[in-house]
Simulated scan of single mutants.
Amino acid sequence: MAGAPAPRHSGLMLAGVLLLGFAASWVLQNLPQSPQPLTRTPVVASVLDDPGSPRAGPADADVTIVVFTDYRCGICQSTAPALDRLLATDPKVRVTFKDWPVRGPDSTAAAHAALAARYQNRYLAFHRALMASRGPLDPPRIDAIAAGAGLDVTRLRADQAAHAADIDAQLGRHNLQAFGLGLQGTPAYLVGPFLIQGGLEDRALSAAVRRARRAAR
């Protein structure tokens, strides 16, 4: 009987090891990795030149940021405002959005609706509203978010149906581009010629833009 308490201690040790493992996994997945310089390979060209990816910012920007996102990705949601602030304060930055739904049916439904919003010229407003939302993204919730972002929901659903093949093809291209770049998940950025995986807050994002501008000199 003297050895009876041992299993409890072993269980506590195992729980501690698991917690440390989860913490390490979170860090590896969500903190930005070191920038990886890329050359203009066919894969990179397909990412940059895809005309169907939504964009915001001036056409004559000196730095283009490509961001791969998922509306069910918590890190994407928490860092999206930093990208919005950069767009608002830096007139020479352009952002290309790559909806990459990798977190289940809700992600796919939201991404499909977001791309359909382009037909009302409301992609950016809807994208921001989806990023600011919390909780499940089932069709009624997506409709409510769309209405709050100023979209005509009836038209949104009609556009989703009418352009379903084009929207599916665009999401498929984003998926191929992500795999071509070797992305491990969302968020991920291509800032100028540098690939960065993991979320970027304001300071890191500004530093990435400065790095891209130095590289272009």
Rank of each mutant, 00 (worst) to 15 (best):
G21S: 01
Q33A: 14
R72F: 04
P35M: 06
V43N: 09
D49H: 08
Q29L: 14
V43P: 08
V43K: 07
D49C: 03
V95S: 02
G52A: 10
P35K: 01
V63E: 14
V102A: 11
F68H: 14
A88R: 07
P42G: 07
V63W: 10
P32W: 07
D62M: 00
D49G: 11
R40Q: 13
D62N: 07
Q36K: 14
P91M: 01
F22A: 10
T64N: 00
V47S: 02
A80P: 02
P37K: 09
Q33K: 13
P81N: 12
S78V: 12
A24D: 08
A88P: 00
V44Q: 11
A56T: 11
V63N: 10
Q33S: 15
A61P: 04
V44R: 08
F97A: 09
I65L: 14
L38A: 03
C76E: 09
V47I: 10
Q29K: 12
A61E: 09
T96D: 09
Q36N: 08
L18H: 04
R55A: 13
W26G: 07
A56E: 12
L87A: 11
P35N: 07
D60I: 08
L19N: 02
I65P: 13
S25H: 15
D62F: 02
V102N: 12
N30F: 09
P54M: 04
P42S: 05
G57P: 09
A61M: 10
V44L: 12
T89V: 05
V102H: 12
V43Y: 05
Q33H: 14
P37H: 03
S34L: 13
V102I: 15
L86Q: 03
S53V: 00
L31D: 04
V63Q: 05
Q33N: 15
P58C: 00
T96V: 15
P91H: 08
F68E: 10
C73A: 05
P37V: 02
A61R: 04
Q77W: 10
R85W: 04
S78A: 11
V47D: 02
S46Y: 01
V44I: 12
I75R: 12
D90C: 05
S53P: 03
W100E: 04
C73P: 13
I75Q: 08
S78Y: 07
S46G: 03
F97R: 07
V102W: 06
R55C: 01
W26K: 11
C76N: 04
L28K: 15
N30V: 05
P58G: 06
S78Q: 14
A56L: 13
D70A: 03
A88T: 01
L87I: 11
L19M: 10
S25I: 13
A24L: 13
V93M: 02
R94F: 03
L19K: 00
K98P: 01
P35F: 00
L28M: 14
V27F: 11
G57F: 02
D84K: 13
G21E: 09
P32V: 04
S53T: 09
D49F: 06
G21T: 03
A45C: 02
I65S: 06
I65Q: 10
I65W: 08
Q77L: 12
P101A: 02
C76P: 11
P42R: 08
A24I: 10
T79I: 04
P54D: 12
P37Y: 02
R72Q: 15
D62S: 12
W100I: 03
A80Y: 11
S34F: 01
F68N: 11
